[in-house]
Design a protein around this nucleic acid. Structure first.
Lengths: 358, 358
DNA sequence: TTGAAAGCGCTAACAC
DNA sequence: GTGTTAGCGCTTTCAA
């Protein structure tokens, strides 16, 4: 069933039928009615592909994220699709597993498919040649969650350095000095302060932590920054590691909800209690964090709203409108029960006392 | 940059250039080389839209789910996209909010966009005219999670009646007789046994429960089947309701992870302990269910694998291959700590005793 | 192996 | 208002 068929049935020219069907140009009521009736009778449906070919607009946006399995992206995606749908756009979703090569390919394919614009959570803030290409291809691009290095692209993200500073201060005030930070971010070398990281987000968080220590006149425990936390087992082993020995961490910050699960499990397995022996803090406020005992202290990010804003910003660009005032999203520290005062770490000595007591 | 440009640069006909670029037909090595070199130099990229118009294949599949925000669908979607990508397909994702009208529209749009096939988690197993249309449009269709009434469509789902029977028996063996079942499923009237429900999945679960009670020679507490649990507040109010009075439930089954959160919160707010005062069981084994105190007894479903299988099945159909042996997915009851023996509900009497004691 | 020409289903100029 | 004629960028006859 094509416009030609409908036109024939309605006894009008192809052009008139197309105009009535596509709702453009000038069509008399009489013709419109006949065409629509014919279309209905033939159960005609437009071929959006053909339509896109002519107009150059596919009414589709590409979304490239690291991992939809992560509820963080699940929520953001929900925000994006909701806003997109409302504006008449569909979403092609691609998962990159935080792999740069996969991201490069994803962008290429989406561009080939002629999406009208792209929303990307860049796997790397350093290696952004492929994203520059998008920009050059003339199609709008928006970043979500993390920046893309020095690319001049509208970015919807929270001020990570700020909230990280705030969270670290909270821990410092509770007396913690040995604070561990665990993230899946892949790096070639172990962490050194000032080193360039692939993720602007993690970089900002670490910067916030450092600033907090600096402001307090305390040394930043860089040995407790643990990146490359890959699968669940490696996260647990890292957790065990930072919680071992006399110089052990007394507080652990988990970089996202997925890591948090393994970290908390490892803490429980070690027989340590939260927050008695270890304080715990994580990024993202998922509903389940209220159900644990104790409920977890978290950094809440307006993820859904960021998704909505990203889609809206992209659509504005696609429609050639001037960019709206850049929305600034703020994360908030939700103090629940998993951060407590720093425990006394002189237990080995205490143990000696016990022996001496009798 | 079009094939015409490349052809000109390579000094061959448009047809030959297209053949070299598209990797079909007969092309001499010499021509191929020149064309590819020219394409590279001009940084030519094919227009997949135009390609699709001719071939009739868009290499895109449509996925229609109720709510990606729900990690259940997040995981399934991940499985689908992983398998799709491996086979060279992209995914357009549409969220329906479990709304039938939205689903009808989603299917229509995806069909208009010429997706090669559809994976749907039908919002209703009853009202399936729009899905029948898909079938008639000649494009392959696969269901995930729930069946579509009597439509003859390949469906990837677990045997819900079976696992529900098993889970209910587990509760019955622990002495529970008053078992509540809470679901967001929308219905027009309150639940009556045997009534037609929109969701095959919920219907099967309730059937499993009934069979378990029947087999045990016990009356099925149909008054504790609570559907239409919409937002968080309504779920809590329902929970409070079923846990009130002398005839209160002693065990609660939550239909999914999202509901579970509110149910557990409500239980905690009531000051009741799990499993001392109330036993609790939920569908879907999310990682966080191991972190609560006590860890939750759950029904685990191989969601990711179902997603992978759905994509594979769809792709087989799209490529005209005979359907593989229908994969049967089985859910498993993971017994953790949230189901305990049925508490003694005669406390008012016990209280009387206390008074009499002195 | 190559090229010319016809078409996929639609929109967009251009006349009338 | 309406119809005719070109395309969009590619694939696919069909001859050569």
């Amino acid at each position: 069933m094509t416009v030609a068929d409908v036109a024939k049935a309605a006894q009008v020219s192809k052009a008139q039928a197309a105009r009535a069907l596509g709702n453009y140009g000038a069509v008399s009521d009489d013709v419109r009615e006949r065409v629509l009736a014919a279309a209905e009778a033939l159960s005609y449906r437009p071929n959006e592909l053909a339509r896109s070919m002519n107009t150059g607009k596919s009414h589709t946006i590409g979304v490239v994220v690291g991992d939809i399995e992560n509820p963080h992206f699940g929520l953001a995606t929900r925000g994006i699709t909701d806003a997109a749908k409302k504006a008449g756009y569909n979403v092609i979703l691609v998962n990159t597993d935080e792999d740069r090569a996969a991201e490069v390919e994803a962008v290429r394919i989406l561009l080939d498919k002629r999406v009208d614009g792209l929303i990307v959570a860049p796997a790397s803030s350093v290696d952004t040649a492929h994203l520059q290409q998008v920009h050059q291809s003339g199609r709008p691009l928006v970043f979500i969650d993390r920046t893309g290095g020095d690319l001049d692209v509208e970015t919807l993200a929270v001020d990570m350095a700020k909230i990280s500073l705030e969270a670290t201060q909270h821990l410092l005030e509770a007396g913690h000095r040995r604070i561990a930070f665990i993230s899946t971010l892949r790096t070639d070398a172990p962490y050194k302060p000032g080193m360039t990281l692939d993720s602007s987000q993690i970089e900002d968080r670490l910067e916030g932590m450092q600033r907090a220590f600096l402001a307090a006149g305390l040394p930043f425990p860089e040995d407790l920054v643990r990146l490359n936390a890959g699968d669940a087992e490696s996260i647990r082993s890292i957790t065990r590691d930072v919680l071992r020995g006399p110089e052990r961490a007394t507080a652990v910050v988990a970089s996202d909800g997925l890591i948090a699960l393994s970290v908390v499990e490892a803490i429980q397995e070690l027989g340590l209690s939260i927050p008695g022996d270890v304080s715990f803090l994580m990024y993202d406020d998922f509903p389940w964090t209220r159900l644990t005992t104790p409920p977890l202290t978290v950094i809440a990010q307006p993820v859904y709203n960021m998704g909505v804003a990203a889609a809206k910003a992209l659509i504005r660009q696609m429609e050639g409108l001037p960019p709206a005032a850049p929305a600034q999203f703020t994360a908030t520290l939700v103090r629940r029960g998993s951060v407590g005062p720093c425990p006394d770490l002189q237990e080995p000595v205490a143990a000696g006392r016990t022996v001496a007591a009798p």
